[in-house]
Simulated assay, not measured.
Amino acid sequence: MSERLGPYELLSRLGAGGFGEVHLALDPEGRTVAVKVLHPHVAADGGALARLAREVETMRRVGGPHVAEVLDASLDGSRPYLVTRYVQGRPLSAVPVPVADLRRLAAGLADALLAMHEAGVVHRDLKPANVMMAEGEPVVIDFGIASALDSLSVTASGAVVGTPGYLAPEVLEGKAAGTEADVFAFGATLAYATTGRQPYGQGPASAVAYRVVHHPPDLDGVPEWLAPLLRECLATDPSARPTAAQLCARLGVEPALRVPPPRVQRGGDDLTTREWRPGRRERPRRSVEESRARHREKVRRRWLIGSGLFVSLLAAAARAPLPEVALFLLAAYALGVIGDAGVALFSRSPYRRGRMILDLASVAGCAGLCFGLAAVFSPFTLALFAGTALVVGIVFLLSA
């Protein structure tokens, strides 16, 4: 059974970090969002929460295709949380490196830095784990949280503000973290994405921090077009590093249109959460039940088509040596699908007409594909196709 937190329905746990757990959730309109529930030791620090509350409005002004916008926040309850746009993908730290399209990654990260810095937000904890890769595009998450929660009581409770190897030298020396610190982290993140190595090596945090302050980064293997820029980003002197605007200019990035993220409506407050995706028009609102019905119908169609293809392969492979088996497979599939069409006939689902049409078309398509494949390919080849399809299907289910 799903859990509710304020107006949000928590569906599943996506992960956890130093400051909280992230959950996939549905907002009151049935749209997917990411809800970060702060850890109890973080929630117990009133001063840190007060700073975070002051920063939330600034963070909400950050918009663009390469940042996960802050949509809502509730910081005065027993379980304080932040709500951001849900980004479906994997973190840069979990994808194969070197990254194939390095220019696309560099351009997206530069645009994200510009969006944050123009709004007056310093990320403070930019690293591969905080860069989500969504269909090849980088999206920066968790911006502004580290700097807002940088307090002695929070860090003493176990949360580390920043990651060794991506923290700028001035931060390690106890100085304030400005936008220059984000540029340093940008360089270190790109160096990792390019070489697959931490630019200042691995080991104890103290050893990595010492190398950051006193040693040059390891940029062996970085392409010639990128290496000079990364050296400037990783300069020990903050004033020697380029700004986010200069990064965009040197990488040929046209700054994306900044569209303010939507707000969340609670009673009379102007606060309405909507899923916002850059470049897309807002879709009609759906209830939670409508969203679930739509999702179930999408999954059902995929299973119907996938199972039809698999059955047609098996039946075609068995048609010559075992015609009775082929007939049985086709008949079983047809009975199952016709039964599904009968259920749709008496249901009140808005998708019942399309469901019945697809069911009948699947039966005819499965039979036609079976005879067509049997006429073109040998039973052995078809058996190999069926085995391959089975393995691919199992791998897909496990990865999903």
Score class of each variant (00 low, 15 high):
Leu38Ile: 11
Val62Glu: 07
Ala34Gln: 10
Glu224Met: 06
Gly268Tyr: 12
Val42Ile: 10
Ser12His: 15
Asp76Pro: 02
Leu229Gly: 02
Val171Trp: 04
Ala209Lys: 06
Ala134Asn: 00
Phe328Tyr: 14
Leu373Arg: 05
Leu360Gln: 04
Ala156Glu: 15
Gly89Leu: 07
Val288Pro: 00
Asn130Met: 04
Arg79Val: 06
Pro278Gln: 09
Gly221Asp: 01
Leu314Val: 11
Arg60Ala: 11
Arg85His: 11
Leu71Ile: 11
Leu126Pro: 04
Arg90Ile: 07
Arg302Cys: 02
Val212Met: 09
Leu309Gly: 09
Leu251Arg: 15
Val139Ile: 05
Leu172Arg: 06
Ala50Thr: 08
Ala53Arg: 15
Ala119Met: 10
Ser291Trp: 08
Arg274Tyr: 10
Arg250Leu: 13
Leu271Trp: 06
Gln198Lys: 13
Pro96Gln: 03
Gly342Asp: 01
Leu190Phe: 00
Tyr333Leu: 12
Gly387Asn: 04
Val161Ala: 15
Gly252Val: 13
Ala73Leu: 10
Ala25Glu: 11
Arg352Pro: 02
Leu105Gly: 00
Ala119Trp: 07
Trp225Glu: 13
Arg352Gly: 03
Gly178Ile: 03
Asp182Glu: 02
Leu11Lys: 14
Ala68Tyr: 06
Gly306Asn: 12
Val337Cys: 02
Glu29Ser: 12
Trp225Pro: 07
Ala361Cys: 06
Pro169Lys: 07
Thr194Phe: 01
Arg280His: 12
Leu322Lys: 07
Asp220Ile: 04
Leu126Gln: 06
Arg60Asn: 09
Phe346Cys: 04
Val22Tyr: 05
Val70Met: 12
Tyr210Gln: 14
Thr58Trp: 12
Ala68Cys: 05
Pro28His: 04
Thr32Met: 14
Gly64Arg: 02
Gly144Thr: 03
Tyr351Ile: 01
Val35Arg: 07
Ser78Asn: 08
Ala235Asn: 08
Arg60Thr: 06
Gly165Trp: 01
Gly203Tyr: 11
Val325Gln: 05
Lys127Met: 05
Val395Arg: 01
Glu69Tyr: 07
Ala375Val: 04
Glu9Thr: 13
Ala168Ser: 09
Gly174Lys: 10
Leu190Val: 01
Leu149Gly: 01
Thr155Asn: 11
Ser378Lys: 09
Pro96Val: 03
Val264Leu: 15
Lys298Trp: 03
Val391Ser: 00
Leu257Cys: 11
Ala207Phe: 13
Ala107Thr: 11
Cys366Glu: 05
Leu167Pro: 01
Leu360Ala: 14
Val337Arg: 01
Gly201Glu: 13
Thr388Tyr: 02
Ala367Ile: 08
Arg51Ser: 15
Glu297Asp: 12
Asp72Glu: 08
Tyr351Arg: 06
Phe396Tyr: 14
Glu289Phe: 02
Glu232Asp: 11
Gly18Lys: 12
Phe19Asp: 06
Arg211Met: 09
Gly372Pro: 09
Ala53Tyr: 09
Ala43Thr: 07
Gly368Val: 08
Gly336Ala: 03
Ala244Pro: 05
Val140Ser: 00
Glu9Tyr: 09
Ala205Pro: 13
Ala191Asp: 00
His117Ile: 02
Arg301Leu: 08
Leu92Gly: 01
Pro80Tyr: 09
Glu289Ser: 08
